[in-house]
Design a protein around this nucleic acid. Sequence first.
DNA 1: GCGTTTCTTGGACGAATCTTGAAAAACGGC
DNA 2: GCCGTTTTTCAAGATTCGTCCAAGAAACGC
Lengths: 224, 224
Amino acid sequence: MSYTLLIADDERDIRDMLASYFGKCGYEVLLAEGGREAVRIALRGPDLILLDVGMPDMDGLEVCRSLRDAVSCPILFLTARIEDADKVNGFAAGGDDYIVKPFSLSELAARVAAHLRREERQTAKAEVKFAGGLVINYSAAEIAYRGAPVPLTRQEYRIAELLSLHAGRVFDKEAIYEKIWGREGEGSSAVVAEHVRKLRGKLAEAGADSPIETIWGLGYKWRS
Amino acid sequence: MSYTLLIADDERDIRDMLASYFGKCGYEVLLAEGGREAVRIALRGPDLILLDVGMPDMDGLEVCRSLRDAVSCPILFLTARIEDADKVNGFAAGGDDYIVKPFSLSELAARVAAHLRREERQTAKAEVKFAGGLVINYSAAEIAYRGAPVPLTRQEYRIAELLSLHAGRVFDKEAIYEKIWGREGEGSSAVVAEHVRKLRGKLAEAGADSPIETIWGLGYKWRS
DNA sequence: GCGTTTCTTGGACGAATCTTGAAAAACGGC
DNA sequence: GCCGTTTTTCAAGATTCGTCCAAGAAACGC
């Protein structure tokens, strides 16, 4: 399961450098060249956002403020401004970390990983009950309906896991494919659709009414 | 609701200074003079832990490792060690932040607040409320009026999303078309107008008075 | 190796959605 | 109040999207 980063910086060199570095680390990378673009792309739901503070069209702080209510992922500022007051402003805008250029890539990577790990720790409960008698045991990778385990294949389970962990959030088929397969693919949407069909079939067979809803033209979501 | 911090440092001056500062900020403060004591007190479940790396009886990293599975709160390292490798070690040990001495109190306070805020955000839904009882949940791609979701099609939702994110700004029809369809088109204005009509219709049907205003000769805007 | 399970791909169908064109209404300047 | 322009409305055709099925490919356990 791969994480998606959104990197927003107006300087092409930095953007490319970060993209290639995190790409090599196994992350999916989305790029934005400016603040407005960052806001738009952020709605695709990255797992973490790296935001340059000084961008010409829309200030990073401003981007952060306008996103804060809409997306819940960690937002890390990158900046050359070193003053305390600047840092405090960054946090006040809703940022989760403030990294001063020039930064070392290893430290940046460690911080990114730490924030992602924290996100995961939040949701790392062994067992979660969902409406309708469905219970998912994430550590055992098992879904049960009224005590009886539902036999799922790997991809089916992973899709259920992804959607259920973010219950209520809409994922389009490409996003699901990228998260689970860790790469982009052309026939991705058909593959995902097929697995969702199987998954629904097995859940229905077990007697549960499927918690996976189709949002026409947008994707799937786990009923919350 | 006041948060409880655990501050672990073997130097009495620093401990007292931090305790008094965060005490004034309204936090409950627990103090530990060494690593072993920190582990013991941490089990009382503070909301956040400030951990000195260099303590005589038990290294901060060690403390962190032994706590990580037991407590899920953020752990912030305080240290004079500035090397990248040290920082990376800190994060690898399960730390959530790494703050180099001498640090400014305002920055430290901002970081503490950011980590606590993040904990809280986990439970909060990502929703934005607009005037007139309209609520948009961007991650669920859903618009609700007085709790009842308004069934929108893809393009309708996207237009609402675009306009609401930049409430108050006027978009002409070509601009909307380019943002959403990602290309230029000739009949674009008619297409957009049609979708806006449908969108208004559905919002009106749900009972909400449409937040989309027509600026004659210029385009549309979301009432702010 | 061999058989079984799981994954992936392609195509057909129906339904939901999008787009288009033309006519009616609204607006603003004069 | 009239006229050109812009917006709104309506209905029908075109397109996209999701579901389903079946068969081939790949991975897996033994």
